[in-house]
Amino acid sequence: MGKYIKFLGVGILFGIVLVKSEAVSWYRIFEMFKFQSFHMYGIIGTAVTTGIILLLLSKQLKVKTIKGENLRVPLKEKGFIRYIAGGTIFGLGWALCGACPGPMYILVGTGMFSILIVIAAALLGTFTYGFFKDKLPH
């Protein structure tokens, strides 16, 4: 149980940050895709910039994980079709219901229980992908 406490802590912080930044709001996603505010671009931009700096620094300083291994990001497989096609399908859904997977869970905590329908549908979508995986171009 003890080894899971840190992940609970990270999750709690994640939930708080995404609510307080309003990134879980459908309205903010609409606004982002309309290019009418800098807010979401500021969040993603500073997250990625900070992330790049942290990862470059940890490589320079040879930072180890708590397991004593080199801190490394798992590499995505090479490819094009799966990323552009899967990404586009994801984007259509993201803009339609205004929530990507992280915010879906977080919104349950804010008491927006109708989001459970979106989560159930997302599970069905994931299952459907698994079912047709070998027939899809990747």
């Binding site: 994801f90 859904g93 339609l96 979106v118 997302a122 994931t126």
Partner: peptide, 16 residues
Amino acid sequence: LVVGGFLVGFGTRYAG
């Protein structure tokens, strides 16, 4: 909600 959620769940796994 159902179509939106479905597309998110399908697309995200397709895109990895």
